[in-house]
Write a protein that binds this DNA or RNA. Structure first.
Lengths: 219, 219
DNA sequence: TTGCCCGTAATTGGATCCAATATACCAATA
DNA sequence: TATTGGTATATTGGATCCAATTACGGGCAA
């Protein structure tokens, strides 16, 4: 999954990529209004490519478009967020299963490093980055592009709430997550797909239940 | 899930809805090139709303956009189609589970009628329509809009291959599907979610395996 | 014949202008 | 005072024009 940052892309794609980064990095709060002209000015472009970019982000679930009215940074209710997590519980084990046979030795080593770094780390943003890399790397062996894109969209749409929840829990409440990561890594390393699937399912499910205990991060 | 046909929508949405219908009804073969100007002329509009419509359909997986090059009716390889079905196997039981508690008596009666009509029917297009209505109706009790949309997209992107496969099997090879529909209906009716999930999983899985026996319908 | 190069036509992408729609504000009235 | 109606303004949607990119085809050389 190569992520080319602001390369030689067309204007609309460049704008979409840039906005996507800004949203995922938490610079925009969900519910924030997006005016086409503002974005256009910000990129020195006209409104045409901005509109295309907003459609792309709308399709990804990062932006909500309302006809004749405007665009907002997408917002999830607790119920909707739980829905996303339930989908993840069912779909990510499938993706992991497809990925495991093709994971390289280097990939496994990197996974181990990531699990260690997460445990040693105290910073929220760093944790989010490492956690994302850990899981997406564990899926990198899969050649199923459609499923991979779907999972990445699920991660993206829930990113904001994962951040808010991580902030709340400080650094203490993550012991379980770290254990699960190590268990998952062990199952992957010994090629036990069935166990890996089960652990991953439990990991996502437990996170969903934890998340539901903090409705204050939702509108 | 109300499907408003060509109502008072904005031009871009009207064009998208119309193209969607044409694609789903099989009027376009996968791989067919779509030129913006043709569509624009066909709808008496300019290319602007056509481009927006194509982006929407691209997001739904019905059209494939390539930057600076053009748009084509989306095409799936056998592998990709199997991927879609594997996702369906995992996700649709979840949706059914969320739907079952809220299905009305009228809904159940309609499901029974649909199962009967499918069995009595001989026509391919009619079968596709009834089968789709049967399953989507069984999900209609779910208030999970995001999951519902996702499932509908999965159905839409695979519609063309389901049609081709149904044509091949003529009307004889569907005994098993009819049995499964009746079993599913029975489980739903008696409110046995666990069993319903399992039957639905098996139903989709078996269809995937059958589909894989007919690689000739894929490019 | 086959492969490559280059020029022209076709097609998409972006900018600008105009139209349609929605929001916000203010006044008038119950 | 609260609410309704209407007008002005802000914002999005669509049409048209121009620019950039790509695809096609003929000519040339190996």
């Amino acid at each position: 999954m190569a992520v080319s940052i602001e390369g030689d892309l067309a204007t609309s794609h460049r704008i979409a990529a840039s906005l996507r980064e800004e949203i995922l990095s938490g610079q925009f709060a969900p519910g924030t209004r997006i005016r086409q002209e503002d974005i256009a000015e910000q990129f020195g472009a006209s409104r045409s490519p901005v509109r295309e970019a907003l459609r792309m982000l709308d399709a990804e679930g990062l932006v909500t478009l309302v006809a004749n009215t405007g665009a907002w940074i997408a917002q999830l209710s607790l119920t909707e967020c739980e829905e996303m997590y339930q989908i993840r519980e069912r779909v990510e084990p499938l993706l992991l299963n497809a990925s495991m046979p093709n994971l390289t030795k280097e990939g496994l080593e990197r996974l181990a490093i990531l699990a260690q770094e997460m445990e040693a780390n105290q910073d929220v943003e760093t944790f989010l980055r490492l956690d994302r890399e850990f899981h997406l790397l564990s899926y990198s062996g899969a050649s199923t592009a459609l499923l991979g894109d779907m999972v990445q969209r699920l991660w993206n749409t829930t990113q904001h709430y994962r951040r808010a929840y991580t902030r709340l829990l400080a650094t203490n409440g993550f012991k379980t997550a770290h254990y699960e990561h190590h268990l998952l890594l062990a199952a992957i390393t010994r090629g036990d797909a069935e166990d890996a699937e089960r652990i991953l399912y439990g990991h996502i499910r437990r996170t969903r239940l934890e998340l539901a205990k903090h409705p204050e991060v939702f509108p």
